[in-house]
Simulated scan of single mutants.
Amino acid sequence: MAHIDYYLSTQSPYCYMAGDRLERIAEKHGATITYKPIDAWQLFDRTGGVRPANRHPNRLAYRDQELARWSEYLGMPLQMRPAFFPVNTAPSSYAIIAAQAAAGGDLGGLVQAFLRAVWAEDRNIADDVVIREALAANGFDPALADSGLFIGAETYGRNLEQAVADGVFGAPFYIVRETGQRFWGQDRLDFLDRHLASL
C-alpha cells in the first residue's frame, strides 16, 4: 500500500483548487495520506521562493489569470481578493494536526473546509468559531481547537523542517513515501494518479 505525504498551506489557493481529488486518487489506489500543514511563507523564505506581497506585478497579474482559469475549469467558486488573506495559518493548521491525531472524522473534508472558508466564503480561519465549526462539521470534537494547541505547535514547526529536508518548496506538494516521487501543484495530480497506478 502506497503512502502519500501531503504538504499543504491552509491559505493556498492551489491547495483549495485541489478540492478532494487527492482523497479520491488515494482511495482509488488504496493509498493512505498524512496531512502535513506548513507555514508556506517560511517555506518560501527557506527554499528560494518569494512571498506573494513581494512578487513582481507581472507574476501577480499572471497568477490572477491562472486562478480565474482554474476556477472556471474546475467549477469552483473563487474570491480573487479574499477578505482574510493573508491570514495566520497556525490555528487552522494546529486543528488539522490535532484532528489527525484524534482520528475518527473526515480529515480531507476538514482541510477543504478551511481552504473553502478563505477562497469561497470570506471567512477568517484564524477565528476560533470558524475552526470549531469546521471541526464539528467534519466529525471531530470542536474542543480539539483548544486541546490540540501544544501538539499542534510542536508538529507544525517539525513539518516545516521535514518539508525542507524532503525537497518541498511550495504547496500543495505530494510525496509518495515508497518511491520518493514528488509532485508539486494541484495540476500534477494526474501524474500522481498515473504513478500510483504503476506501483
Rank of each mutant, 00 (worst) to 15 (best):
A2R: 09
I4W: 07
Y6N: 14
S9D: 09
S9V: 12
P13K: 02
P13I: 01
C15P: 06
C15A: 13
C15G: 11
G19F: 15
E23G: 11
E23Q: 11
E23V: 13
R24H: 15
I25G: 05
E27Y: 11
K28T: 15
G30Y: 03
T34M: 14
T34H: 13
T34G: 15
D39V: 09
D39K: 04
Q42S: 05
L43Q: 01
R46H: 14
T47D: 07
G48N: 10
N54D: 08
A68W: 11
L74S: 03
G75L: 10
G75Y: 08
M76V: 02
M76F: 02
M76H: 02
Q79F: 14
A83N: 09
F85D: 01
P86Q: 08
N88Y: 05
A90N: 13
S93P: 02
A99E: 05
A99S: 10
G105N: 15
V111S: 08
Q112L: 07
A113P: 01
A113C: 05
R116Q: 08
A117H: 08
W119D: 05
D122Y: 10
R123F: 06
N124F: 04
I125S: 01
D128K: 12
D128L: 09
I131A: 03
I131L: 07
E133T: 03
A136V: 04
A137N: 04
N138K: 14
F140E: 12
A145P: 09
G148A: 00
L149P: 01
I151S: 08
I151L: 12
E154C: 11
G157P: 02
L160G: 02
L160Q: 04
A163C: 01
A165K: 01
D166A: 14
V168A: 00
V176W: 15
E178S: 09
G180I: 10
F183M: 09
L189D: 06
D190L: 11
R194I: 14
H195M: 13
L196R: 11
L196W: 11
A197K: 07
A197W: 06
S198C: 06
